[in-house]
Amino acid sequence: MSPVFRFAPSPNGYLHLGHAYSALLNFDLARAGGGRFLLRIEDIDTSRCRPAFEQAIYQDLAWLGITWEQPVRRQSEHLAEYGAALERLAATGLVYPSFESRAEIARLVTQRETETGRPWPRDPDGAPLYPGCAKVLSQAERAQLLAGGVPYALRLDMAAAVARFGDLGWTELGQGPDGKSGAVGARPEAWGDVILARKETPTSYHLSVVLDDALQGITEVVRGQDLFHATSVHRLLQTLLGLPEPAYRHHRLIRDTEGHKLAKSGQAVGLRALRAAGATPAKIRRTIGVI
């Protein structure tokens, strides 16, 4: 079976050198292995995603010499599929609604830290683990809040899910944060009760990415080291949903002169700006070390 690779950007800003590295690496690996290369637009965040950014993605990738199969999968066109997967998870009894706002969660974390005198545990991205008590609400209490139109997030009962499936892991073909490859033990519990969907959006990054990879037949997930720890959650969701496990290869990140990861939120220089300044695709490849 031919390998299938993908590049899956979000149209919430212009692509930068970090995106170029990941896209070119996937494209080159697909060509070298006689495989397929797919493009996926991860546009479930309607508050930040813009059609102009999506068009810029196509333009920047084409300028780099990258071609992809049609049609492009746009997540916003597949919400029903994510909703169906969420219903399957809910049927296992491992999903529950929480009703605290982000501000209320921040206050709860401060309260817990004051009570214990210790920092509240954080997930690998630095966000505090869910500190609320929604998991112990009665069915009647939940029904009343839902009927009242209170905003909610649907969370995975992580402790129960981990207890049900035991040890999970994957074989890392690239480099983890420690620079090593090989067998990795998954630790999804480090993320706490992750959000699977919200009232206004029937999916999340974690849920949609594992479902998309399965539905598109992705066999090779090649992405940045910043998503290494998220793979633990993805392996758990794949197991819960009975989805196939792709091979994982996490690659180095392109950093600025101060050693920070390039990010749209950090005003990283976009490929379109570099192109306007006279850069060529060959120069981009030399700059990021993809020759």
Rank of each mutant, 00 (worst) to 15 (best):
Gly117Val: 04
Pro131Leu: 06
Ile105Cys: 05
Cys133Asp: 14
Leu168Glu: 11
Leu86His: 12
Arg88Leu: 14
Val136Met: 03
Tyr152Arg: 10
Gly148Ile: 06
Pro131Asp: 09
Arg155Val: 00
Ala134Phe: 03
Leu108Asp: 04
Pro121Ser: 03
Arg88Cys: 12
Val162Gln: 08
Gly148Leu: 05
Tyr96Gln: 09
Leu154Tyr: 09
Gln139His: 09
Arg118Asp: 01
Val150Tyr: 00
Gly169Gln: 11
Arg142Asp: 00
Ala163Pro: 09
Gln139Pro: 12
Ser98Tyr: 03
Leu108Arg: 14
Glu104Gln: 15
Val162His: 07
Thr110Ile: 08
Gly126Glu: 06
Thr114His: 12
Pro121Val: 04
Asp157Arg: 07
Pro128Cys: 03
Val95Ser: 05
Gly149Glu: 07
Pro131His: 08
Leu86Asp: 12
Leu168Cys: 10
Gly126Pro: 03
Tyr96Thr: 11
Pro121Ala: 06
Leu168Ala: 11
Ala134Cys: 15
Glu141Thr: 10
Ala159Gln: 13
Leu94Met: 01
Ala163Thr: 04
Gly132Asn: 05
Leu146Tyr: 11
Leu108Met: 13
Ala147Lys: 13
Pro97Ala: 06
Leu94Ile: 02
Gly83Asn: 10
Glu100His: 12
Tyr96Asn: 10
Pro128Gln: 00
Ala140Phe: 08
Arg102Ser: 11
Ala147Asn: 11
Glu100Thr: 05
Glu141Lys: 01
Ala84Gly: 08
Thr116Lys: 01
Ile105Phe: 06
Ala159Cys: 05
Ala91Gly: 15
Trp120Ile: 01
Asp125Met: 12
Ser138Glu: 14
Thr114Asn: 12
Arg142His: 04
Pro131Tyr: 07
Ala85Asn: 09
Leu146Cys: 11
Ser101Arg: 10
Arg155Asp: 01
Ala85Gly: 14
Leu137Gly: 06
Gln111Gly: 02
Ala127His: 12
Ile105Asn: 06
Asp157Gly: 02
Glu113Ala: 09
Pro128Met: 05
Gln144Phe: 00
Leu89Lys: 11
Arg142Phe: 01
Val150Thr: 15
Arg107Cys: 04
Ala134Thr: 00
Trp170Lys: 04
Arg88Asp: 07
Gly148Glu: 11
Ala163Lys: 00
Gln111Pro: 00
Pro131Glu: 05
Tyr152Val: 10
Met158Phe: 08
Val150Leu: 14
Thr114Gln: 15
Gly126Thr: 04
Asp157Pro: 09
Gly126Val: 06
Val162Cys: 15
Glu100Phe: 12
Gly93Phe: 08
Arg155Pro: 02
Arg107Ala: 15
Asp125Pro: 00
Asp167Ala: 15
Ile105Gly: 07
Val150Glu: 14
Val136Leu: 08
Val109Ile: 03
Arg88Lys: 15
Glu115Gln: 15
Ser98Lys: 03
Glu115Leu: 14
Leu168Asn: 05
Thr110Ser: 15
Val162Asp: 09
Gln144Cys: 11
Ala143Arg: 14
Trp170Leu: 06
Ala147Gln: 13
Leu86Lys: 14
Pro124Asp: 05
Val109Asn: 02
Pro121Thr: 01
Pro119Gln: 03
Pro128Ile: 03
Arg122Tyr: 04
Ala161Glu: 02
Ala90Gly: 14
Asp167Lys: 15
Val109Met: 03
Glu115Tyr: 07
Leu129Cys: 05
Pro151Glu: 13
Ala91Val: 05
Val136Ile: 13
Gly169Asn: 07
Ala140Trp: 04
Asp125Arg: 02
Phe165Pro: 01
Ile105Ser: 00
Phe165Gly: 05
Arg112Met: 05
Glu104His: 02
Met158Arg: 06
Ala91Trp: 07
